[in-house]
């Protein structure tokens, strides 16, 4: 489904991705780990069509990114590291807003069902009054409005409580299984990665995460 061949990306003289390659199939959950600045977020942005690689090729369902990036965007759900919601709107207003602009059509009942699935029930609460965990859930829920077949999450559980973290992890596992969605996400929490992911890819040359990963596999 997804194929990444020898992707390179630099910011000035700093090489962030160096001949990075990977492939993934539908229904898989892949964890990306690595130290800060290793290129996890850069890779996610390239996979999400938000950034161009300096060289290399990417394919989604056999179609190259370079030519079909606008078409691919309809298949991709991207959960940015920042909470990308409108703080002044309520939870359901945020869902309605992005639904109206999304390629997919969903009724208000379907939007509420999606929120309930992710255990976010305070539909009429203003986002600015929600806890960090609730905001993270909404951040994820909005990315699912267009029923993506490829979901990218950039540290979706950063800075939230354990209960919300577990709920999000459980939701992602169920979602990938039920919808055959390919999920790639980054995290610094190896326990979370181990719990949720089918496969882990270490980014960067730092050996710390490789050794840590080896310990977990043991």
């Amino acid at each position: 489904m997804l194929e990444v061949n020898s992707v390179n990306k630099s910011y000035g003289k700093r090489h962030v991705l160096d001949n990075f390659s990977m492939s993934a199939e539908q229904g898989e959950i892949i964890g990306l780990v690595g130290e800060n600045g290793a290129g996890k977020s850069t890779l996610l942005k390239i996979l999400a069509t938000l950034s161009k690689p300096d060289s290399g090729a990417l394919y989604l369902n056999g179609k190259p990114y370079k030519k079909y990036f606008k078409e691919h965007r309809k298949l991709i759900g991207y959960v940015p590291q920042d909470i990308a919601v409108w703080e002044d709107l309520t939870v359901i207003e945020n869902m309605k807003f992005f639904q109206k602009l999304s390629p997919a059509k969903k009724s208000v009942q379907e939007l509420k069902a999606l929120l309930n699935n992710i255990q976010l029930s305070r539909h009429d609460t203003k986002v600015s009054k929600l806890s960090g965990g609730m905001k993270r859930k909404l951040n994820l829920a909005i990315s699912l409005i267009n029923d993506p077949v490829f979901l990218l999450l950039d540290e979706p559980t950063a800075g939230i409580d354990l209960k919300s973290r577990i709920e999000i992890g459980e939701f992602l596992k169920t979602h990938a299984k039920n919808n055959d969605t390919l999920i790639i996400y980054t995290s610094h929490d190896m326990n979370e990665i181990k719990e949720v992911c089918d496969r882990v890819i270490v980014i960067g040359k730092d050996s710390f995460y490789r050794e840590l990963l080896a310990d977990y596999i043991k």
Binding site: A48, T49, L50, R73, K74, I76, G77, Y78, P80, D82, I83, A84, V85, W86, F98, L101, S102, P103, I142, S143, N146
Partner: peptide, 17 residues
Amino acid sequence: SSARIRFNFMKHSYTKF
């Protein structure tokens, strides 16, 4: 706003909006 990034995945671009 961080929410602007989502327009990349919408049927209408941020510019159009």
